[in-house]
């Protein structure tokens, strides 16, 4: 029985491969990677001044991520058990990573004040990135497709602006404006050098904002572009055989994208913690 089953499987695989080799490629459409990231309004709303309030798929993905986080938090908080099950252990592990691995490991002071923000941004970016790896029907003509809200520069720049504002708020709140700005410059240096270092520091603060947002955005865009290319191999080569052979590679890329999604959320949160912690301990 078992040996016969093996032969049946072998025959099925051979027939399938032969069929794939003989069949022509998929629908004769060209692949448009850039089209995957275009945002068209799904619900058209009137613009308020220069701000377009139309609801596109990025907005829906953001709502989905928010809903997932809120429901997850409520379900976990209602069913806390002293003997955690698998689900609770996983969420507790992530919480411990956000608190001990990110906030406590890089911030010398102010962990209790700023952990809510660090943890929130970690979970928000993480859930957003992971939802991007679930095919949802928001593609062209409501096909299943991959998209993530963090593959949109406006979303990531808003998140980075939160960190930027909170960094300087934390510094000014602790030291006062004068002392905080003075802490950017070395004491006891000649005035020209102090002004020069002040300008360099100000530029680096702006570039932190740029790099924090562009890092997440470019990672997500690059990941989803590679996913789109690998999943559309049938369109590119116009042959099912090559497409079938490369599906293994696309699974590997998909697994790597899960890793990238977690790592990028981790890096976003830890750099936010480093910046806020740096502003709090800048009394050098």
């Amino acid at each position: 029985m078992k040996k016969g089953l093996k032969w049946v499987w072998l025959v099925v695989v051979v027939v399938a491969l032969a069929g794939l080799f003989l069949l022509p490629g998929g629908a004769k459409k060209t692949l448009n990677v850039a089209g995957e990231f275009e945002l068209t309004p799904i619900v058209k709303l009137p613009a308020v001044g220069p701000v377009d309030l139309s609801i596109n798929k990025a907005v829906i993905y953001l709502w989905l991520a928010t809903a997932v986080i809120v429901i997850l938090a409520i379900v976990i908080a209602r069913n806390l058990k002293p003997q955690p099950g698998r689900f609770q252990t996983a969420v507790e592990g992530l919480y411990a990573l956000a608190r001990d691995g990110i906030a406590r490991s890089v911030m010398k002071s102010g962990v209790d004040t700023w952990f809510p923000y660090i943890g929130a941004v970690f979970f928000f970016v993480l859930i957003n990135n992971l939802i991007g790896l679930v095919p949802l029907p928001f593609g062209e003509h409501h096909q299943l497709s991959f998209y993530t809200a963090t593959a949109n520069l406006y979303v990531t720049i808003t998140l980075a602006l939160f960190t930027f504002v909170f960094t300087h708020y934390a510094g000014i709140n602790k030291y006062g404006v004068r002392k905080y700005v003075n802490s950017w410059m070395p004491t006891g240096a000649p005035p020209v050098l102090r002004q020069f270092i002040f300008v360099i520091h100000a530029v680096s603060e702006i570039f932190r904002l740029v790099s924090l947002s562009v890092r997440l955005f470019a990672n997500m865009v690059a990941g989803h572009a590679i996913l789109a290319v690998f999943f559309a191999m049938a369109l590119i080569f116009q042959s099912y055989l090559i497409a079938a052979a490369l599906q293994g590679a696309s699974v590997l890329i998909y697994l790597f994208e899960i890793f990238v999604a977690v790592i990028q959320a981790f890096i976003f949160a830890i750099l936010s913690a480093v910046y806020i912690g740096g502003a709090l301990d800048s009394g050098h």
């Binding site: 890089v106 562009v214 890092r215 865009v221 890096i267 830890i270």
Partner: peptide
Amino acid sequence: TNMFIGIGVTEAVALYAFV
């Protein structure tokens, strides 16, 4: 932890090229 911070900062350079 510090390695991941470094990775984030280093990798940003390649991502600028990508952008």
